[in-house]
C-alpha cells in the first residue's frame, strides 16, 4: 500500500488480522470496528482491489436467504496490518502515559 491507510482502514485491517484464518461477515465486522456500512464497504472494496483482502461466498446459506459475502485477510494484508498495527499500538501508549 503506497499511502498510509486511514484510521478506519487500519481498524478494519487490525480486526481482520486478529483472526487471519477466520472468514468474517460485513455486518459483524462493521459492528466490531464501529463503522457504518457507508464507510465499511468502500474500505472493503479498496482492500480487495489491492489484494489485501480475499472475499468468498457463504457455502450453505439458510433457505430463503441469499449467500453472504465473506472476508479474510491475505498474507500481504497481514504484512500491512503489522506495519500499521505497530503505530496504532504505540500511539495509545503515548496518550495513556500519565501527565
Amino acid at each position: 500500500m503506497a499511502r498510509r491507510p486511514s484510521p478506519q482502514t487500519a481498524a478494519v485491517l487490525a480486526a481482520l488480522a486478529r483472526e487471519p484464518a477466520q472468514w468474517r461477515y460485513g455486518y459483524e465486522l462493521g459492528k466490531e470496528v464501529g463503522l457504518e456500512a457507508g464507510t465499511l464497504y468502500p474500505i472493503l472494496m479498496r482492500l480487495s482491489d489491492r489484494g489485501l483482502l480475499e472475499a468468498g461466498w457463504e457455502s450453505d446459506p439458510p433457505a430463503g436467504r441469499p449467500p453472504r459475502h465473506l472476508y479474510r485477510i491475505t498474507g500481504a494484508g497481514q504484512r500491512v496490518a503489522a506495519d500499521v498495527g505497530a503505530v496504532a499500538v504505540a500511539a495509545p501508549q503515548r496518550r495513556l502515559r500519565p501527565a
Partner: peptide
C-alpha cells in the same frame, strides 16, 4: 459481486431498524 454482497448482508440482519440503517449505509457506499 459487491451489490450481491450488500443485498445478502442486509437480508441477514434481524431487526427492521438495524436493517434499514445498514441498507442506507450500503446505498451510500
Amino acid at each position: 459481486e459487491w451489490g450481491r454482497a450488500m443485498v445478502a448482508e442486509v437480508a441477514a440482519i434481524d431487526g427492521s431498524r438495524a436493517r434499514r440503517r445498514f441498507a442506507l449505509g450500503c446505498l451510500r457506499a
